[in-house]
Amino acid sequence: MCGESSVKKTLVFVHELVASSPTRSRGGADGVVIETRQRFGGATFDLMMRVALAVPCYVDQFRPEAARATLTLLERLGCEVSLGFDAPCCGQPMFNAGVVTAARGAAHEWARASAEFDAIVMPSGSCTHHVRHHVPALLDDEASRHAARVTYELCEFIAGVLGKPQLTGRFPHRVAMHLGCHAQRGLRLGGSTELHEPPQGPMHTLLSGLDGVDIVPLDRPDECCGFGGSFAVGEAEVSVVMGRDKLADVARHGAEVLVSSDPSCLLHLDAIVRHGGSSLRTMHIAELLEEATR
């Protein structure tokens, strides 16, 4: 959309535009760019984009390479990335388990840590969904509303805020795409079969823009993988069968790589892959984009 021009804008304005964008709820990160250009008359700003990388607790511990890849990728795209975000968890695990009181402390800490940033990027759709849609309702204060306004899922940030819906890169593999459900139906970052929509959204666009990539169609493209937070252990048997079914769908279509923007889905799917000894490579979208744009 903004082509190859190096887009450097000040996010102080951008997050306000995003908040007021009517298309936002429909995965309309693209709409942000359009509005930005209208408001700014297409001018580029020489201010460096300052953005905080917020790493969810389980990514920090179980998949730090996804966080490293996110950092590298953002820097490669011209961002100045702060690693000073000092809250460990947005509180989603407790919130979704119904233990709302226990979710409040973490959410509060998260909102506090958000205060000093104008843009926060998370390599997780589900955490972003929680911060954007649940935390403000839970805390009902200005800090949480600020956190909700400035927090972005990685793909929507790259495509919408940085204005780079496609990157120059190469990934010559057969790839199956799995958008986490909270990115899919919570943040509306993908086309939903329930709503009769074609495959679309920032992750799909970013992926399909790479040279050599072959996105395989799945029989059930937006079926849940079965992770579901506490569900993965509370309903362990159903959870694993769902995961196996997802992986069987991926295998049936000959994918070499399964990519997701949700590390929590990957944590679960990867554990099933490792248990079953399959050769499928699971990747976070940051890892894939980082590798493709080296």
């Binding site: 119904g98 233990v99 409040r104 402390g105």
Partner: peptide, 30 residues
């Protein structure tokens, strides 16, 4: 919303009531 009501009524699935409040404490400070 029903999950939250179950919790408030002390009717969480087994294990939840001991794990999640503790997890909440751990995850609320770096």
């Amino acid at each position: 919303a029903w999950r939250a009501r179950s919790a408030a009524a002390g009717r969480l699935p087994r294990g939840y009531a001991s794990i999640f409040p503790l997890l909440g404490r751990v995850l609320s400070k770096l």
